[in-house]
Simulated assay, not measured.
Amino acid sequence: MKHSNNNKEKFYFEIYKEERFNLFYFELKDEEGNIYLESWQFTYKTNCKEGIKSVIRNFKNRERFIIEQPFYNAWRVYLKAGNGIIIAYSQYFDTEKEAKNFIEDLKCLSLETPVIDKTK
Rank of each mutant, 00 (worst) to 15 (best):
1 M>N: 14
2 K>E: 11
3 H>K: 02
4 S>M: 14
5 N>Y: 14
5 N>G: 13
5 N>T: 09
6 N>W: 02
7 N>I: 15
7 N>R: 13
8 K>I: 03
10 K>L: 15
11 F>S: 09
11 F>Y: 02
12 Y>I: 08
12 Y>S: 09
12 Y>Q: 02
14 E>N: 01
18 E>D: 08
18 E>N: 09
19 E>H: 07
19 E>L: 13
19 E>I: 15
19 E>Q: 10
22 N>Y: 10
22 N>T: 10
23 L>D: 12
23 L>W: 06
24 F>C: 05
26 F>L: 01
26 F>I: 01
26 F>R: 02
28 L>W: 01
28 L>Y: 04
30 D>R: 01
31 E>M: 02
32 E>R: 04
32 E>L: 08
32 E>A: 03
33 G>F: 06
34 N>D: 12
35 I>A: 00
38 E>A: 01
41 Q>T: 15
42 F>H: 00
43 T>G: 07
43 T>A: 09
46 T>N: 13
48 C>R: 01
49 K>N: 11
49 K>G: 11
50 E>W: 09
52 I>L: 12
54 S>E: 15
54 S>R: 12
55 V>R: 11
55 V>C: 15
57 R>T: 15
59 F>Y: 08
60 K>W: 05
60 K>A: 07
63 E>W: 05
65 F>Q: 04
66 I>V: 12
66 I>R: 12
66 I>T: 09
70 P>L: 12
70 P>F: 02
71 F>M: 11
72 Y>S: 11
74 A>M: 07
74 A>G: 12
75 W>D: 03
76 R>Y: 05
77 V>N: 02
78 Y>W: 09
80 K>E: 06
81 A>G: 13
82 G>E: 14
83 N>H: 13
84 G>Y: 15
84 G>H: 10
89 Y>W: 06
89 Y>D: 00
90 S>E: 04
91 Q>T: 10
93 F>I: 06
96 E>C: 04
96 E>S: 07
97 K>L: 09
97 K>D: 00
99 A>E: 01
99 A>D: 00
105 D>W: 04
107 K>G: 15
107 K>M: 05
111 L>Y: 14
111 L>H: 06
112 E>N: 07
114 P>Q: 10
116 I>D: 12
118 K>Q: 12
119 T>K: 07
120 K>Y: 08
